[in-house]
Amino acid sequence: MILVFAETWNGQFKKSTFEAVQYASACAKAQGTQALAVVIGPASAPVESLGAHGVHKVLHLHGPEQFETAQYAALLAGVAQELNSSIIVVSGTANGRALMGALSVRAEASAISNVTALPLSYSPLRVVRGAFSSKGIETCESRLPRSVIGLIPNAIGLKDSSDSDAAFEDRNASETARATVLEQQLASGSIALPEADRVVSAGRGMKAPENWGMIEELAKTLGAATACSKPVSDIGWRPHREHVGQTGIQVNPQLYIAIGISGAIQHLAGVSSSKTIVVINSDPEAPFFKAADYGIVGDAFDVVPRLTAAIKKYLN
């Protein structure tokens, strides 16, 4: 049995959840076994949508109101042990990543994060993962009969869902939490960076925080998340959570547009696996051009508003 943690966010399933579900289903198929999705806590989204991505069964554990590492790890490990699962798939979101270490210990499993593709083999389990901040690709082998796989968001293409013939089971479940969430503060309307399909990112070339309007406008036009280079968040022009790179968020969107960013090795380490990279920089010698698919030499203050207009024209 292959298990997948179907994470909810504000009661909804995110794209990364469906990716993890699809991944687990593909593993199950390859091994001639079944995939089971575990939903924990309140879910306002229909659990049928998980079945449509290939799992045979959805187990909904009611009880916990909010994510807490130890509690979720204990609940998932309990199911893994009950069903003798060989693989537990989680997606590499903030919660998925926070969970992996505790889940692995609790379920007596190996922990393999940053996985980018379906397993190369199942016995022994071998998977490909990113290492050294995307500067290397590692083939990793599990030494234990059970493994937790952390899947990088956007690494596998999400296929269209099909009709669901999954079974559903509801259970009440409780495990002790070791910490209590007092409050959550969510930046409204923003698209979470790690799983964004498109990212518009800007650096010190924007000169001042008040110039970010045009960046946000371009991002809005594209339905993209906004990001920034490290110095921009260090000096407080943008929030920390937008900082991408080796020491920030690692992204691999379909489209990454870098504006006024020089392309330092630490920045590239977090963004170079993006499928298509567009660089806009006034300096033709900027190192970022070497890592780009499309480059524009020009002043961001001139180019960005015109690019937004050109995209709007195209979208109409």
Partner: peptide, 12 residues
């Protein structure tokens, strides 16, 4: 704790 799209405050 940083979470996707925001932060949360925990007591422990």
């Amino acid at each position: 704790r940083e979470i996707d799209g925001g932060k949360e405050i925990l007591d422990l």
